[in-house]
Amino acid sequence: MSNAPLRVVLAKVGLDGHDRGIKVVARALRDAGFHVIYAGLWQTPEAVVRAVADEDADWLGISLLSGAHMTLMPRLLQLLREAGLSHVGVLVGGIIPEDDVPKLLELGVAKVFGPGTPLDDIVAFLQQAPRDRHASTAS
């Protein structure tokens, strides 16, 4: 199992329609050997959680440029917990004010990547993260 490609769902929630950043990340992760499921724009938190569940994702990457992160992320993380998906690592990318970063981490986000983050940093973060996240649900 350890060599299997990690599955990453990438999505945008809420009304912001800027998808260039998330597409660049999607491609970089694909090129680094990940299986990337691109769920697209304008997703509701409920739809994202359903995608994470059905796709058996290891990671969920959310791109947020709208400023709605402090309302959308708590809701998303709560829905993930309710769906039995606490083992899924959550990343946030986009424009997040510095003061909000610790709050998001506190809520359970694994990492926040701001604008200008080198793609290699994102890839390296995922590759170095522990791989046995599934242990809790597989047993």
Binding site: P5, R27, R30, D31, H35, V36, I37, Y38, A39, G40
Partner: peptide, 8 residues
């Protein structure tokens, strides 16, 4: 790797 965009 793979980029799976059908769901979109």
């Amino acid at each position: 790797g793979a980029l799976l965009g059908d769901r979109f």
